[in-house]
Design a protein around this nucleic acid. Structure first.
Lengths: 200, 200
DNA sequence: CTTGTAACTGTATATAATTACAGTTACTTG
DNA sequence: CAAGTAACTGTAATTATATACAGTTACAAG
């Protein structure tokens, strides 16, 4: 869609509002009345301009034949992250498997994405392989929270404990080892905190 | 909305389809063409009938002045069932705590409601106290499936095993006992099978 | 058997709506 | 300064659309 003039934006906005209010597109005369035009041709040529710029479509010979052209809107729902390749940001487009129809507001704080769980290291926290963990993207974690952490290009879900420069990443499964990190020696990034879980 | 005749339903459906296709309501003549009427009055009187029965609204003097009347549609999302009172059906209105904005199609087979988990008896299946279990309402369960069962007015979530007249309801937690039921002696109702889980 | 209603045909007409043509004014761009 | 364009006025004509009126046929209910 080409760029619109101020007046054209104003008119497009009014058309949107009219359609929301009335359930049908406006006539030329209605547009005249609303914008204060004294000539129906003013409405006509504005509509033609909007059509030329791709904002609307006009169906000729048809009363109220105005169609809004949909902006290619962003997919709704939460992105589902599958395997995360080494060295790439977790929300890279390449990692997005799909968009799941789940409201981010279902979780508090809101979820920003879903991460598919690999392995059984959090089994005792009720997090099983294949589950989708809802993650709130944040850099700050409290002790004891379940976090999504990146340690040397590996993304992992663990329980977070910190004392000064020492961080411990605890699995909730005695079969797995506790990961100890000295922040001076190894880079650790908190990618977010777990705010929920979905098993489908 | 009053009940519609078959023909009226057909016409209402066509109007819906037309609006979805064209973005605007149809004219009387378009309706004639579609239904094979040779008189515009056939369309007119059908529209009047639909208006009388509350299916649509007609704006007089306005071209394409047909508005669909929204059905007072059921709240979208899945009903969340909290505590189930003894002797009452699980989907009784009184048990519905709220509607959660979750698409039933997120689960396969589709979920019909969510049930809040009480107790830790399914801990090892990754089902914790307070979790919401998505349930597909069905009377049929396979051995080994996790089911919502009603045993003498108690609603419980367990793993289902059946051999002839004997049913065993297994917890996934060694701290809880296996429940054995002889179908000849005690009534057991399967309320549905677990199809997913949400922890918010 | 009458009455009411659904589901139409057929004709006619007023009005709602699109759309063409001929201009004007102000502003921007090469 | 000429040419193009946005943003209009004003008039007119055609076509699209709603809608009234007068009937017909079939069927169901009191």
């Amino acid at each position: 869609m080409q760029e619109l003039t101020l007046r054209q934006q104003e008119i497009l906005l009014w058309i949107r509002q009219y359609m929301a209010d009335h359930g049908i597109p406006p006539t030329r005369l209605a547009l005249c009345a609303a914008m204060g035009f004294r000539s129906p041709n003013a409405a006509e040529s504005h509509l033609r301009a909007l059509e030329r710029k791709g904002a609307i479509e006009l169906v000729q010979g048809v009363s109220r034949g105005i169609r809004l052209v949909e902006e290619p809107k962003e997919p709704s729902g939460l992105p589902l992250i599958g395997k995360v390749a080494a060295g790439q940001p977790i929300l890279a487009v390449a990692h997005i498997e799909s968009y799941e129809p789940i409201a981010p507001e279902l979780f508090r704080p809101v979820a920003h994405y879903l991460l598919r769980v690999q392995g059984e290291s959090m089994r005792n926290a009720g997090i099983l392989e294949g589950d989708l963990v809802a993650v709130h993207h944040t850099l700050i974690a409290q002790n004891g929270q379940i976090v999504v952490a990146r340690l040397e290009d590996e993304v992992t879900i663990k329980r977070f404990y910190r004392q000064g420069e020492r961080v411990e990443l605890h699995p909730d499964n005695p079969d797995y080892p506790v990961i100890e990190v000295n922040l001076k020696k190894r880079a650790l990034h908190i990618e977010g905190v777990m705010v929920g879980l979905i098993r489908a």
